[in-house]
Design a protein around this nucleic acid. Structure first.
Lengths: 352, 352
DNA sequence: TTGTAGGCGTTATCAG
DNA sequence: CTGATAACGCCTACAA
C-alpha cells in the first residue's frame, strides 16, 4: 500500500509537507500543494488509519456494543448511529453482548485498545458500567448509554420516555372502558421495563383502578416470554379484557396465546405493544403499539458523542425522546360494553 | 493506558521478554514468565491493537459491507459472521452501502487503511468489485462475497441455491394444480433475483406451462415494490391464482395488494415468499416461504475468511447453501379445483 | 534464554 | 512556508 513517503517523493517535497497538506496544518504554497494533491489522487493514497490513530492517540472508530443485532428493535438503532457517525467521518465497530455482562465487559475492554473516538452502549442485564466508563473517561473518550441505563449511570444517555409512553397506552385502554387490565412486563432489572411498568401503574392509579399482583407478569423481552405469561394471564378470573405488553415481541407471543386460547383479539382481549416494529403492521390483527424511534435513539447517541469529540465537556446529557401511540386493530372496547358509543380520545396517530 | 514498557518494568524484565511471553515467541523461563503474567493481570494490560496491527501489517478486524442493516434479512447474516469472527478472535467493522456502489467503494477503500484481516461483502447493485478485491488480494487480505455476486466475481463466495429454492416453491404450486402463475421478481441485475426467476421459469417449463411476459413483474426487494407490481398482476386477465414473490418483503406488499383488491389469500390467490423471515409467521395468513439461513451465510463467510487468514491459499471457494420450503397458510389449491383432493407433495417442512 | 534496537506510517515540534 | 526528526506501542531479528 502506498504511503506518505512515496507521495513525498512523487511530489518532490518532504514528508512533513505532505502531512501538512493532508491535515491543513500549515499554509502550504499553492503550487506545492497541487503537486502533493496530484500525487495523492494519482496513486489513490489514503492515510493508514492505524498509524494515524497510534500517533494521535485516537482513531475515527466508534465502538458500539448492543445485546443482539438479531433483535428486531436494534438494527434501526445501529443504523441511526452509523448514519450520523459516517456523516462525520467516523466508523462503527459493532459488538453483540448477548445480554451477558461478561461478554459486554470483554468487548468494552478490547475496544479500548483500538483507541476509539467514542463508545455507544446498550447495556446488558444487571450491568454496572461505571468502572469501565471511568477508564474511558480518563482517556478522554466519551461513552453514551442508550435505551436502558446501567446501575448508577451518571454519564451521557439517550432513552425514550418509557413511563409516559406506557401511561399513554394504558390510559387509552382505560378511556375505552377497560377495567380488567393486565400487563406482561420485561425483565424488571432493566430500567426501560421498570419504567414501562411504572407508566402502567400510574394510568391505573389515576383511574382509581386496582388490580391484583398476578395481573402483572414479568417476562423476557421476547415472543416466548410473552406467550407463556399471557397464557397465565388468560387463566385468571376475571380474565383481563386488555393487556399491555412491554414490547412488540412480547405482544406477538401474547397474540399467539390469545389465539391458542380460542379467544379473539381485539373482541375478547385488547392488546397494546411497545416499539411499533414494522412487523406489527402485518400481524392479524395489526398491532397497536407505543411508537419509539430506534433510529433517533442511535442517531442522538452518535450526535452527542461527536459533540464530545469536538470538545464539549459540559455536564452529562440526558436526552429523553418522546413516544407516540400508534393505533391499529388490536384494540377495541371491552366485551361487555362493545355496543356503547365511546368518544375516541384525540391526540393519537392513526395509521392504515 | 498501560503499555508493554510498564509491564516490563513491573516484572523487572526487558520489553522484548514481555512480548515473547505475550506471543509465545520464545521459551521464557517459567518464573520470569509468571512475573510477566502477574504484572499483566495486575494492571489489566491489553496490547494496543493499533500498534500491533501497524507492526504486523494486519489487525484482527474483519470489515463487513452490507446494503442496509435495517433490511430484516441482514441482521442474521451479520450475527452469523460476528459469532464466528468473535470466536476466532476477530472483530467486525460494519458498514452500510445503501446499495450505492459509490458508498460501497468508499467503504472498501477506507477499510483497507485499517489493515483488516479480511472483508465480507454483500455487493450492492451493479457493482464490479474485481479491482477492489485485487488490491486486497495483493495485500494478502481475503475478500468473500455473499448472498449475491458482483459482476465477474472469481473470488470466494457463499450464496444459497436460489434457483433450486425458487424451483421448489413454484413446483409446489404447480403440483397443487395452479396453472395461472405469476411472479414478482427482485431487481434482475442482482444475481439472486435472476436465479430465483430462473427457478420459476424452470418449474413452469418442466410442467409445460406457458405464461405471458406480463405475468413476470420486476420490482425492488421491498414491500412497496411488491405491493405495486402485485396490483398490476391482479389486473391481468386471467388473474393469476398463485404468485411467487422473490422475497418476503415483496410478499408482504403482495399480501397488502391482494387484501386491498378485495381478494383473499390463499382462497383466491396463493402466495409464496423467499427468505422465511420471522415476520412471515405472524402475518395473516402466515406466509409460505423458501427458507434460507442468513446466519449460516454469514457464518460460512467468516469461516472461509478465517481459513484464508490461517494460510489457506487454495482456489476460490464457492459455497452454495441449501434452501427448504416452509409451508404455511398462504398457499392452497387454485379456486376452480379447491374441492379436489390433491396429494400433498412430500419432502417439505411444515411448521405451526 | 533474555535483552537491544530498528522500524511499521503517521503527526507534531522545531529549526531553517 | 518547508523540511528534518522524534515519538506513538509493538514485534522481531539479532546479539549477548
Amino acid at each position: 500500500m502506498s504511503n506518505m513517503k512515496q507521495i513525498a517523493k512523487m511530489a518532490r517535497v518532504s514528508l512533513g509537507t505532505v502531512s501538512h497538506v493532508l491535515n491543513n496544518s500549515a499554509n502550504v504554497r499553492e503550487p506545492v500543494r497541487q503537486r502533493v494533491l496530484e500525487a495523492v489522487s494519482a496513486v489513490g493514497y489514503q492515510p493508514n488509519q492505524l498509524a494515524r490513530g497510534l500517533r494521535r492517540d485516537k482513531t475515527n472508530m466508534i465502538g458500539m456494543v448492543i445485546p443482539d443485532i438479531t433483535n428486531p428493535f436494534f438494527p434501526a438503532v445501529v443504523r441511526g448511529a452509523e448514519d450520523v457517525a459516517f456523516a462525520n467521518g467516523y466508523r462503527l465497530v459493532l459488538c453483540n453482548s448477548d445480554n451477558h455482562h461478561s461478554k459486554e465487559l470483554a468487548h468494552l475492554n478490547e475496544l479500548r485498545t483500538y483507541l476509539p473516538a467514542g463508545i455507544i452502549v446498550i447495556p446488558s442485564n444487571f450491568s454496572d458500567l461505571t468502572a469501565q466508563a471511568e477508564v474511558y473517561r480518563r482517556a478522554g473518550t466519551g461513552v453514551v448509554c442508550i435505551d436502558r441505563l446501567p446501575k448508577n449511570w451518571r454519564g451521557d444517555s439517550v432513552t425514550v420516555d418509557n413511563e409516559q409512553g406506557a401511561f399513554q397506552a394504558v390510559d387509552y385502554l382505560v378511556k375505552l372502558g377497560h377495567k380488567h387490565l393486565a400487563t406482561v412486563t420485561g425483565p424488571l432489572h432493566l430500567t426501560n421495563a421498570k419504567d414501562r411498568l411504572a407508566g402502567f401503574n400510574r394510568a391505573l392509579d389515576e383511574a382509581k383502578i386496582h388490580i391484583l399482583p398476578e395481573y402483572i407478569q414479568e417476562a423476557t423481552f421476547d415472543k416466548r416470554g410473552g406467550y407463556l405469561k399471557t397464557l397465565a394471564l388468560l387463566h385468571l378470573v376475571p380474565r383481563p379484557t386488555a393487556i399491555f405488553a412491554a414490547n412488540d415481541m412480547i405482544a406477538l407471543g401474547a397474540l399467539l396465546a390469545i389465539r391458542e386460547g380460542g379467544l379473539r383479539c381485539p373482541e375478547d382481549v385488547s392488546l397494546v405493544g411497545f416499539d411499533d416494529l414494522d412487523l406489527g403492521e402485518t400481524t392479524n390483527p395489526a398491532l397497536c403499539s407505543v411508537s419509539q424511534s430506534g433510529y433517533q435513539l442511535g442517531a442522538s447517541a452518535a450526535s452527542i458523542l461527536i459533540d464530545r469529540i469536538k470538545g464539549d465537556d459540559g455536564p452529562a446529557k440526558h436526552v429523553v425522546l418522546k413516544t407516540s401511540l400508534t393505533l391499529r386493530n388490536s384494540v377495541t372496547t371491552p366485551p361487555e360494553m362493545s355496543e356503547l358509543h365511546l368518544v375516541q380520545p384525540s391526540n393519537f396517530v392513526r395509521r392504515h
